[in-house]
Amino acid sequence: MDETTMRDLLEDERAEAQALIARLTQGIDEISAAREGDNSDDEHDPEGATLAFERSQAATLLEQTKDRLGAVAEALTRLDEGTYGICSVCGTTIAEARLKARPYAAKCVDCASRG
């Protein structure tokens, strides 16, 4: 795959992550607003527990998406530096199929599976 195609994939990933961050942030704000001024006890209010769970899930997904956005930025830097597609751990070439599926991947499948 050529550099232009990879850059396009990474830019698509960046745009998708930014849009998801905006939606999640808005959702968290809406959940928080729904609870604002409500002094009910989440533990004993059936709706309160649901809202707390939804807020927690959205916050976790938001953090993961921010991490992905950071990984995309790092991948774009690697692309600019000429090290894109090379495993950051073992130095082997990352398989094209992996880069198509996860264009921001910094590790080959073997190194990624080891943690």
Rank of each mutant, 00 (worst) to 15 (best):
residue 28 I to S: 02
residue 55 R to G: 07
residue 14 R to I: 01
residue 114 R to G: 04
residue 64 Q to R: 10
residue 105 A to H: 14
residue 5 T to F: 06
residue 31 I to T: 14
residue 42 D to L: 11
residue 105 A to D: 03
residue 8 D to T: 15
residue 109 V to T: 14
residue 112 A to W: 00
residue 30 E to H: 07
residue 29 D to P: 03
residue 32 S to Y: 11
residue 4 T to D: 12
residue 11 E to W: 06
residue 2 D to W: 08
residue 90 C to G: 08
residue 23 R to C: 05
residue 17 A to R: 00
residue 28 I to H: 00
residue 104 Y to D: 12
residue 5 T to D: 08
residue 3 E to F: 09
residue 56 S to A: 08
residue 88 S to E: 04
residue 33 A to P: 04
residue 102 R to V: 15
residue 84 Y to G: 03
residue 36 E to I: 12
residue 59 A to S: 04
residue 33 A to C: 06
residue 33 A to L: 12
residue 73 A to N: 12
residue 78 R to Y: 00
residue 53 F to I: 11
residue 28 I to P: 04
residue 84 Y to T: 03
residue 70 G to V: 13
residue 45 D to H: 04
residue 38 D to Y: 05
residue 71 A to Y: 09
residue 29 D to S: 13
residue 42 D to H: 05
residue 18 Q to A: 11
residue 101 A to L: 05
residue 87 C to I: 02
residue 64 Q to T: 07
residue 92 T to Q: 13
residue 2 D to Y: 02
residue 108 C to M: 07
residue 23 R to A: 13
residue 20 L to S: 02
residue 92 T to R: 08
residue 20 L to P: 01
residue 76 L to C: 11
residue 85 G to Y: 00
residue 52 A to F: 09
residue 27 G to Y: 03
residue 16 E to V: 14
residue 11 E to G: 07
residue 7 R to K: 04
residue 17 A to G: 04
residue 18 Q to C: 07
residue 2 D to P: 14
residue 24 L to T: 09
residue 103 P to Q: 14
residue 47 E to C: 13
residue 26 Q to N: 10
residue 42 D to R: 03
residue 93 T to A: 10
residue 24 L to C: 03
residue 35 R to G: 12
